[in-house]
Amino acid sequence: MARIPYIRYTLSQPPRRRHSTDDPMGPASMLVLTLAAIAFSVIAILISRFVVKGSWNPQKGQAYECGIPTQGQTWIQFQVGYYLFALIFLVFDVELIFLYPWAVVVKEIGWPALVEIVIFLFILFLGFLYAHKVKALTWK
């Protein structure tokens, strides 16, 4: 794939590709960082567990709400509005994923890319207008 020519670097040497995709360090870094996060969290929690001399009484185990014993169940039905937003989000998130590969090549393809994306976004925009019309995007 042809790259866009940049204006030459003013520094003496251009930047090197230190870590290309075939560098063994690359993909492994996800594992390394995950392990680092787990190690950090677990060590911090363990240290505090060893340092702290805790006490326990029935009041401590209660939910931190209003001071009086909590009423009823917590895991109840919540507003349906959240689901509607999640559904519309899903549509637009998938749209966004389709836009990523398009955005990379749009400069090479030129006008056809623009025409195609106008059609694509127009269809999605119709759906968006419909969502507005049925008041899915209005918080009740």
Partner: peptide, 28 residues
């Protein structure tokens, strides 16, 4: 939950270029 939050934050460090040619994972 706190572990997942930490892992998500830590994983985001990978593609950030902190300085010239200094990056954990320059993925495409």
């Amino acid at each position: 939950a706190p572990l997942v939050a930490m892992i998500a934050a830590m994983l985001l460090l990978a593609p950030i270029a902190f300085a010239r040619d200094f990056q954990i994972w320059d993925l495409n």
